[in-house]
């Protein structure tokens, strides 16, 4: 009897959690309380130190593709067909010298290579060799104006419902030496599934911060009025803006 009571109470306690929290999860106040620790984690962990860098032998030859596959819209198809000859990375917003850089121009800037681990929010990890331009170098080229607080990355893909993918970093994160605008993966130009022609790599945060298919970088004072107002596509779906944990 006692044993049966024990098993029944154990199972019902566990099973109860799912349905109770399912209801609570829809409550805005509950969500605000739960989300409050993001600021604490951001303040305590932040973006400090350097992500570990690995050797060539650690690299995954077939780096896992996740999330959305290559953009399917016509404009991207045209750019891909001409091997991104007409691609221009627009850098504007709160900058001294707005510009639009071709791939050739980006390739002549100082290149940085880093072999780092990509930690997905889903729990898996993969190691890739990424080469490209340090984001801080590009920021220096265009000159950040005093009002700028965030670097916003506008991407060339959408989720099929017309919502454009975007991401953001604050200037401290963007100035991190490993914040990289990658042009190459494993010694070859990025392929469409991995974000061609240009993607972000931020190895100190979870993978969803490393936006693919970047078309425009905009310096902004706030992202409150951009799309869902939370600073990124996945952030608008409920994921943390600070993704260091």
């Amino acid at each position: 009897m006692k044993r049966r009571l024990f098993i029944a109470s154990g199972l019902s306690t566990l099973a109860g959690c799912g349905s109770v929290t399912a209801a609570m999860n829809q409550n805005a106040s509950v969500q605000r309380v739960l989300a409050s620790v993001e600021r604490l984690n951001h303040a305590l962990i932040g973006t400090r130190g350097l992500a570990r860098e690995y050797d060539d032998r650690d690299v995954d030859a077939n780096f896992r593709v996740n999330g959305f596959a290559a953009p399917s819209d016509a404009r991207y198809g045209e750019l891909l067909a001409e091997k991104f000859a007409g691609y221009r990375l627009v850098v504007d917003g709160a900058v001294e010298r707005p510009n639009a850089f071709s791939l050739a121009q980006l390739s002549t800037m100082p290149q940085r290579t880093q072999i780092t681990r990509h930690d997905c929010v889903e729990g898996w990890s993969a190691i890739g060799k990424w080469s490209g331009v340090a984001l801080s170098h590009l920021l220096d080229r265009v000159g950040v104006r005093p009002g700028a607080r965030y670097v916003l990355f506008r991407c060339m893909d959408n989720d099929g419902s017309g919502n454009l993918y975007y991401e953001s970093l604050d200037l401290h994160q963007a100035r991190h030496p490993q914040a990289l605008l990658a042009l190459r993966l494993n010694d070859a130009p990025l392929d469409p599934d991995h974000g061609a022609p240009l993607r972000l790599k931020v190895p100190t945060q979870l993978g969803y911060k490393s936006a693919k298919w970047i078309g425009r970088i905009e310096l902004v004072g706030s992202f409150a009025n951009i799309y869902g107002g939370r600073g990124g596509y996945w952030e608008d779906q409920g994921y943390e803006w600070y993704a260091g944990i």
Binding site: T21, L34, W234
Partner: peptide
Amino acid sequence: ASIIIPGYQDLSGGRRWHLFFAW
């Protein structure tokens, strides 16, 4: 779903519950 929190597939929701109660 009956033993996961919240009680349906929601990774971002699960992370918020987990990181809050970890603290």
